[in-house]
Nucleic acid binder design. Structure first.
Lengths: 227, 227
DNA sequence: CCGGGTGGATACCGACCGTTCTGTTGCTTT
DNA sequence: AAAGCAACAGAACGGTCGGTATCCACCCGG
């Protein structure tokens, strides 16, 4: 997942006026990697867009590979920050999970939505590559851990299992949105996630008006250390 | 989705003994594109592996782009053939849908599973590209149409909607399996699909069959031309 | 005033890219 | 035997790749 919503997290305030060469390179590389792919983006295009010299890039990052890793690392952190902030605006754990796919939909709707850099990066590199996949899995694990914690707080029977399923839905929606350019895949995936969440919480009806069994699972909202 | 199971569909029998240069080029290109990515695979490597001359490649395909499209077209057809044959072995529509993810799991378990060429191709090319995305969507639509028909035959309330959800689960599983190299994501996705199918068929144990108005949609199992 | 470090400009490196070219096999078909 | 033709080998094209070296213009603390 990649390319965070711009509005929040201006990182360093001074960057707005005097962005360092490093930041300019990171921004340019991020944009070009996302839009055109990593292999299809040359060093020259990056330094061109960043307005720096090639020497500066190699002084700072050492190699294109290291630049790629730096971009993924940074982009992952920004994306996770945006994602978690987006869903944590909701009040209850259930509402937070329910706002995952509306958040994704907003992301999909941006005109510069290019899919998930991590997924695309793994896809366009040799499949015996290790480093990129490790970085991607780390990113994924972080997001899934958060979802799992929410699932547990929401009273899901098997929180890890449910989080895994939601993660698959997220990946699928991200990919489908990239291919089709249709943000409404998020709605479809969101309804699937809601149904799975309903089932995992033991109440199959969408609106909890007609509660069938409802034994416990009402508590647990508290005492949840975020990790 | 890409890279079909080898055992069925030997295409032309004579190819086993005298594979034409075209077939050798297609096979080599397919393998290298899948394993190393399209942009990372040079013409030299393809003709090297195919054992043909560069001239032959350009006489037959005209350009690398055209070769890429030919590979996607062919690989898509092979994959769809394998996929549909795999799930159609089951007897009932419900069983056919239930065998989607076991089939994918077998695919994921191959040691030369490299994800979906279509998804990877879109991901590593400029996002304003049109042709690749069109080819990918065509492939996807074909598969989804088949799933939708099965969903309708299985008595799902909203077959197109369910098929769409299953498609997202498939894409998510394909991507997750590529990144994690863990074929069991197919199990997780499969259980999600089964739960959604249960719910869509109204026999989800607890769901009290809250039908809306929609009186029809019960027939239509027949007269469904797939492609 | 000086000296050192940061970063820009530019030319260059060997390697490889996709593509085209020339020329040569070897098997058909006449 | 002659001609045709698909496929071969291989060199070479202009261009770009990732990466390096050189030189120069600042800027800033002493």
């Amino acid at each position: 997942m990649a390319h965070a919503i711009p509005q929040d997290a201006p990182s360093h305030v001074s960057d707005i006026f005097h962005p360092t060469p490093r930041d300019r390179l990171m921004n340019a590389a991020t944009r070009l990697f996302c839009k055109y792919g990593i292999n299809a983006t040359g060093i020259d295009a990056i330094v061109d867009e960043a307005g720096t010299a090639k020497t500066t890039l190699y002084k700072i990052f050492g190699s294109k590979n290291d630049l790629v890793e730096a971009v993924l690392e940074s982009e992952g952190k920004i994306w996770r920050g945006w994602f978690i902030a987006s869903i944590e605006r909701a009040k209850t754990p259930r509402a937070k999970i329910d706002s995952i796919f509306p958040a994704l939909k907003k992301w999909f709707s941006e005109d510069d939505y290019y899919g998930c850099v991590f997924i695309n990066a793994v896809g366009e590199h040799p499949k015996d590559e290790t480093r990129l996949r490790a970085i991607t899995m780390e990113h994924k694990s972080f997001v899934l851990a958060h979802v799992e914690q929410l699932a547990r707080a929401a009273g899901a029977a098997k929180p890890a299992f449910l989080a895994h399923q939601i993660g698959i839905l997220m990946d699928g929606a991200i990919v489908a949105a990239m291919v089709t350019r249709d943000p409404t895949v998020a709605d479809t995936a969101g309804k699937a996630a809601a149904a799975l969440l309903d089932e995992a919480c033991g109440q199959s009806a969408k609106k909890p008006r007609r509660r069938r069994i409802q034994p416990s699972s009402r508590l647990g909202k508290e005492s949840l250390s975020v990790a």
